[in-house]
Amino acid sequence: MFKELDPILHSQLRLAVMSLLISVKEADFTFIREKTNATAGNLSVQVQKLKEAGYIEVVKKFKDNYPLTTCKITKQGIIAFEQYVKNLQSYLGN
């Protein structure tokens, strides 16, 4: 039986962000923007959604007098991502 794919993750940009963050400890907002080719506005909205779901942590600080936003995947995010990949495999395996 097919399991429903997590709607928070089953979105192109949010999945791209989570896939980036799963492979690093933490990443700057600008790095995520560069790698996903997303606009700052759209990325901010999707990052906020992932944060509200508890999948990522967002830390805002200052570096050399410039604002710096760092994103980091949470334990809950890792579990959700792993489950998403498992469910995906069940779709593709059948």
Partner: peptide, 12 residues
């Protein structure tokens, strides 16, 4: 599902 998998692969 195939697109999802390719996004994950590409980002990594």
């Amino acid at each position: 599902e195939q697109e999802s998998l390719s996004i994950i692969h590409e980002m990594i």
